[in-house]
Design a binder for these strands. Structure first.
Lengths: 345, 345
DNA sequence: CTGAAAGCGCTTACAG
DNA sequence: CTGAAAGCGCTTACAG
């Protein structure tokens, strides 16, 4: 194990001042030193395995070079592309990224304390699905550290960024309409704004096609909620031929419930979900989805932080480019001319 | 937006010294001050919305109170319980946890620099699946910051912790044997140690039952690898009645390939995967798995960091309690007396 | 071209 | 019971 050491120690060993060491480490102004001096310093740095102390740097520079990303369920596959977009954009700006889960943000948690504190985090990208209570959010906003809400769409400071959920709903619905479906319903969560927007997109597409838009079937989020939604439809006696589903996990739950109920997808029922994820291609039948520009959303959030820190202007609001794209898989099919009646549940 | 301020400013406004402010903030020794003084200081803290500067604290205390967890694919659902275990244990010790993905650890990345640096991270829990190159790992180990490898099982410093993969392989295989299966094969990745151990467990159970243990079918990891493995079996002309699969994602890939090939699970083929995850219960047929003590693994890793930082001894090696538990779902069934021959592919 | 010094915001002996 | 001061390890004007 190497010794590490400090700039002071390196300075002593190399027979120079710490200013020179700092200049060598950072490649900064002081840079006009003799090659011989530089080489000597570099040799000692190498020998000791010196690395700078980030806490001291952060204190002195008044900037840590680290941003935090907080999402609701870190294992949710839809974040993958967003993390990637954030990471790439941050890296390009010389920032490190750390991740956290909103489930860790209980009042009084040390994770939250680090976020609420300052000095160690320069900016926060937060995707709240309502789990974060308003008090915590207010605390967060009261700090000078910039907080960007993604898919949040509220916040008095206007610092939010979101994907075009209404467009996603429209694209999904249009795909089903193009396949000849008319009796289409929307399955989705609760009164979370993105879900409302997706439903609005569905409703717009239906109305444009001269069809009736139904209320959303609200059984919550996740696979269990999807299964419950299908059950609700079955129990109601309604027999839609296609479903627009708020998210992939709910779509998978619908697959499972259909399997149990003897409903064939896509033979009896077409299913399309919003947001893409690898798992959609892995289940059978593979789930048709609408891919959203999550990487761009992430990159834009990083840009927003940079802009705020530099006091330069930046655009908030919808990230509508690239547009949502349809990923056609096996769970949607043209409307059967004479559909087989669903077996009674 | 509140002003934040520093202890110095609070001291000035409250007409006390910074020592008193620090004592109020931290509740420390200096604590024998008059109630009136304390109240005055607290009022100013409240008024300014003061929060301590973490960088300054970390510098002074020579400890940041933050540990980092680095895994290979952050969205892999098997980490969920481990993160939970880590978070709870860290919280109990007053530490914040930050997450990172090993895919971010390219040499020269700022994320890696933060890990390699010191002052902002007190300890690192690392699950490497071989993506991290040895050079990076060597750098990491050369620092005074403790690095605990989970599911790594190598490392000259002996600082590793792992679940009992061999036991998992045994439990999975025994379940199939109990159902009457004899022609059982093992599907799993590459020469990654945990996979080798799982295969060893499988082989032990087979041998104990007086049966022949086959070599692992090595097509890699993930759902595509699972599908490829099943195809390899089909092509070979072998007709096992049951498969022990290294992981859930490969299991899902096998489901998909079986669906395509017209092989019924569990009618024609029973499938059990090692490691549990929600998605296993969501696919159809729901996948039987072996749940591993991932939360305990995480908690033990935190304990290990604490022990190293305190210079107190700690146990490394296998985390074999609680033992792996069988989660019986729908993908395994008793051996059919006269199995239907697989349709020729 | 290089060094001495101030200061980032804390914590903690030490003095009174 | 409270204050003045040192020092954690850096960076960056400033002086020479």
């Amino acid at each position: 194990m190497t010794r590490m050491g400090t700039q002071k120690e390196i300075a002593r060993r190399a027979g120079v001042s710490v200013s020179v060491v700092s200049a060598v480490v950072n490649g900064t102004t002081h840079t006009r030193m003799s090659d011989e001096t530089r080489a000597r310093v570099e040799a000692v740095i190498e020998e000791l395995g010196y690395v700078p102390n980030d806490a001291a740097r952060a204190l002195r520079r008044q900037r840590s070079g680290t941003i935090a990303v907080v999402v609701e369920k870190i294992e949710n596959p839809i974040y993958r592309d967003m993390f990637h977009g954030i990471y790439d954009a941050a890296e390009a700006r010389g920032w490190a990224v750390v991740l956290g889960d909103a489930r860790w943000m209980r009042s009084g948690s040390h994770f939250l304390a680090r976020l609420l504190g300052h000095g160690s985090i320069d900016g926060i990208i937060l995707r709240s699905e309502g789990l974060i209570d308003d008090e915590v959010l207010a605390h967060l906003r009261a700090r000078p550290t910039p907080v960007i809400l993604v898919e949040g769409r509220h916040g008095p400071d206007g610092r939010w960024l979101a994907i075009d959920d209404a467009a996603a709903g429209r694209v999904a619905t249009q795909h089903l309409l193009d396949l000849g479906h008319q009796d289409i319903e929307f399955v989705g969560g609760e009164r979370w704004v993105p879900t409302l927007e997706r439903h609005r997109g569905y409703a717009d597409a239906m109305l444009d096609a001269g069809l009736e838009a139904r209320d959303a079937i609200r059984t919550g989020y996740g696979s269990r909620a999807g299964a419950a939604a299908l059950q609700e439809v079955i129990d109601s006696g309604r027999r839609p031929t296609a479903l627009v589903v708020d998210n992939v996990l709910s779509g998978i739950g619908i697959h499972a419930a259909a399997h149990e109920a003897g409903i064939s997808i896509p033979g009896d029922l077409s299913v399309i979900a919003i947001h893409d994820a690898d798992i959609a291609g892995d289940v059978r039948p593979a789930l048709t989805t609408v891919r959203m520009p999550m990487a761009e959303l992430g990159a834009r959030a990083v840009e927003a932080i940079a802009a705020i820190l530099n006091d330069s202007p930046t655009r908030f609001g919808l990230v509508d480019e690239p547009a949502p794209v349809l990923i056609t898989r096996a769970s949607t099919a043209p409307l059967q001319v004479s559909p087989r009646p669903w077996s009674p549940s």
